[in-house]
């Protein structure tokens, strides 16, 4: 555990809590892609199956359980409790275009051809693209509320900090997880355009982030 990894995990947690509280307090999930949230719930589910097979640390177990609970609670708010506010017309990204290639790739490129390893690999690949329905939705509607932008900022920070974590671990331990690193770089690249918009529009602007 190093400072980059810990800050990355905390940013990830903050992002998930920001989104949950935004929906809970405003009693609305307007502007939020339910599809991205289902994909994230699927990411956590397929990645954390090792909760049942191997114990790593109390920190590891607690964080996994918290991520899972928050992910499913958020999905519950969007599709059940506040489903009237869900904008399914704008959330029109075709997730099968992500799921099929990601599933195929996880069978082809993995560390071991076992069910748990393939599901772990699937979750790593899927996480790298799971935010795309949300970014697509913002592009389609042309704007995002600033709180949604803060959510995306913390998710992006989490990714960037994990890159720093991997650089640190490579230098100090010689640790290098190729699948996680390559997917992580891809995932972080998706946030670069958003980072630019965030700093030029949300921080200087009026509260809403509109796209050109």
């Amino acid at each position: 555990m190093n400072i980059f990894r810990l800050s990355g995990d905390v940013c990830h947690l903050i992002a998930i809590i920001i989104l949950f509280l935004k929906i809970w307090r405003s009693k609305s999930c307007a502007g939020i892609s339910g599809k991205s949230q289902v994909l994230f719930a699927l990411v956590f589910t397929t990645r954390y199956l090792d909760l049942f097979t191997s114990y790593i640390s109390a920190y590891n177990t607690v964080m996994k359980v918290v991520y899972l609970l928050l992910a499913y609670s958020t999905v519950g708010l969007i599709f059940f409790r506040f489903r009237n506010s869900y904008d399914s017309e704008s959330d029109s990204f075709r997730v099968e275009f992500l799921l099929v290639p990601v599933a195929g790739l996880s069978f082809l490129e993995n560390y071991a051809f076992t069910p748990l390893e393939i599901l772990w690999t699937f979750s790593i690949y899927l996480e790298s693209v799971a935010i795309l329905p949300q970014l697509f939705m913002i592009t389609k509607t042309g704007e995002a509320e600033s709180i949604t932008a803060h959510y995306l900022l913390f998710l992006g920070l989490y990714r960037a900090l994990y890159l720093a974590n991997w650089l640190w671990r490579f230098h100090t331990e010689g640790f290098y997880d190729q699948i996680a690193v390559v997917s992580g770089v891809v995932q972080t690249i998706f946030y670069c355009d958003f980072f630019y918009l965030y700093f030029t529009r949300v921080l200087r602007g009026s509260g809403k982030m509109s796209l050109p």
């Binding site: 990645r47 964080m63 996994k64 991520y67």
Partner: peptide, 10 residues
């Protein structure tokens, strides 16, 4: 081996 498959990162 065990080490490769043990995932400590979230």
């Amino acid at each position: 081996d065990e080490d490769v498959l043990q995932k400590d990162e979230l």
